[in-house]
Design a binder for these strands. Structure first.
Lengths: 336, 336
DNA sequence: CTTGACTCCCAAAACGTTTTGGAGAATCTT
DNA sequence: AAGATTCTCCAAAACGTTTTGGGAGTCAAG
């Protein structure tokens, strides 16, 4: 309600002293400090955020750009991650703004607007592409940022990512060890690093086992994309007996394709993300998940450290992938 | 990069003139205006947001508080709505910040921090409760806000809501018309307006038909909550033959309970929200959805109008509920 | 030649904070 | 007792905009 000037006047003190008292500086006496704090509490004084930001030359804001292609925004629990991140940022006085990309503008335009207008202290980038123009731009501007997912940028940058390559390679090898020989992959759009990485993992395993890598179909990272991709694979002359899907949503779409084509329950399937929904599908969906808890907090921590100036090399987290065994990966490997 | 002073200096003009030229005022000649604009473009000038906010006494920010109880944050497509809202707000120069509630703090604390620190021009409230302290607080402060969901507040306030009462009443009557007599309701937490509203709709229909209203179980608005609530109803001596669920997520949980208890496919079921996932469950989930498109844009528009000072009464949207018939509501009404 | 209107521009004052660089008084040192 | 040090406090200068209230010119009308 009140501002510093009014508060100072009512206390018979200078603005300076009141400001420093509230910030806990040692050069104001304990008695005065207490008196000021009480008065501030009483009138419910909160420093005006805009004024502070201007003076401190800090926006106290972090922006996350959201791709606007439907379904490309991220898995359903993505908001939970953002929420966790925002919560931890708030503890450091930063707020998280979401910056979707309006039609007709590129993600780059958004970055530019936020960065050049000094609207943010850092940025969080999600759904990174292998070649991501946002990364290059932010690097050139020297603005702190963290990405969710690696890129193929030559300069190192802070990121958190799951080791999709290792995870999908291991999942494929598991199917092979269980006797499967025709193991298909339902891939996400390959311009995304995560989708490419996971695809590479599957391909590597197949090649190690001396198996052909033609049972691969790409689709949008949504139920419908998985459904269509699965139908494509099921039309092949020799059907796969197991399916490794880039995401749970795609796997759930594939599950429906399986039900339609062979009555379901003949083909093994595994997804990735560990959606809550997966425990409730029929059959319950086996899946993979990135290890580590409270991803949002990790992002917040990395962002804060990036703002503090830590070098990019120390701000890279590659998390192992673990399996979540439910039921859908246990179908026999017999010829279909 | 540059600021107004530097830009003015390089052009041999005053700060005032440059500022007004960029804002398109008529009291600067067309020639100068053009010259200024070109120079601004060339150096990539963007006004410093903090300075403008301080001077204009506007935060250029809208906050949305996110409940932190897991699963209480909203349905999976909730982020899409926020994204749409943010996009339309951005067109008016406003950014959307997400404000989760840290442990140990109440949603009220968050509102207070944002409002009293003048960090926002308006707020967006989601998952409103029947008695919502946030609403009362914002009303007392006179800060513009819009809620997603009505409340029982005595003073009118802007909202967008679906007519859950009518929708659930109609859904229940449909089951009755199809011969069902034991129609259960899987309810969300009754402190939320939407959950209570939907429950009331079901109850009203049952009473109109002269049926008992004891087949009702409450759970968390998630798959697990629906699963547990369904198990509870299925344990009753005379099982329901149809289930009206407060949300799709609960319905999907209930679907699993049905599979476990009676092998599935014996009991009709309908949810609400029209999750993409619903088309891929087994059986495909019949559901309901709020009519109207681009909910996010509607929120943005209401927020802008609230900021512009329109009275609350003119900023209330109650949308009809429409049915999305897939398959899960078509089970026979025979005695189980 | 004055008057008024019009065009184009600008100096200075905000907005509310944080921070710099002391000032005055009290206390300690020598 | 003088000088050094420590405690408290404060005036003023930022931070970068927007906006207020004119001030020169120019031009047409009287």
């Amino acid at each position: 309600m009140a501002n510093l000037k009014q508060l100072a006047q009512s206390l018979g003190l200078s603005i300076t002293t009141v400001s420093r008292a509230l910030d806990g500086y040692a050069d104001v006496s304990a008695a005065t400090r207490e008196r000021v704090r009480e008065a501030a509490d009483k009138v419910g004084y909160r420093p005006n955020a805009s004024a502070r930001r201007l003076r401190r030359q800090r926006a106290e804001l972090v922006a996350v750009t959201l791709p606007s292609d439907p379904g490309h925004i991220g898995p359903p629990h993505f908001l939970d991650m953002l929420s966790g991140c925002a919560e931890h940022l708030a503890a450091a006085g930063l707020n998280l703004v979401i910056a979707p990309v309006p039609r007709g503008e590129s993600e780059l335009d958004i970055c530019r607007r936020f960065v050049d207008g000094r609207r943010v202290d850092a940025m969080l980038l999600v759904r990174t592409k292998r070649k991501d123009e946002r990364v290059e731009f932010l690097q050139s501007r020297g603005i702190p940022f963290v990405t969710n997912g690696r890129t193929e940028s030559l300069l190192p940058h802070p990121y958190i990512d799951g080791d999709g390559f290792a995870g999908f390679r291991a999942a494929t090898l598991r199917f092979h060890a269980a006797g499967h020989r025709r193991i298909g992959h339902i891939a996400g759009p390959q311009e995304y690093y995560f989708a490419h990485d996971r695809c590479r993992g599957w391909r590597a395993a197949m090649e190690e086992c001396g198996l052909a890598t033609d049972l691969c179909a790409e689709g949008a990272p949504l139920e419908q994309g998985g459904y269509l991709a699965a139908l494509e694979l099921l039309r092949q002359p020799s059907r796969p007996t197991a399916l490794v899907c880039a995401t749970d949503e795609m796997a759930i779409g594939a599950l429906r394709a399986l039900r339609e084509v062979d009555g379901g329950n003949q083909i093994s399937i595994v997804g990735h993300d560990d959606l809550a929904m997966g425990a409730f599908t029929s059959p319950p969906l086996s899946t993979m998940r990135m290890t580590g808890e409270n991803l949002g907090a990790s992002f917040a921590s990395l962002l804060l450290r990036a703002i503090a100036g830590e070098p990019a090399e120390e701000l890279q987290e590659l998390h192992a992938i673990e399996f979540v065994d439910r039921d859908s990966h246990r179908r026999p490997a017999k010829a279909a």
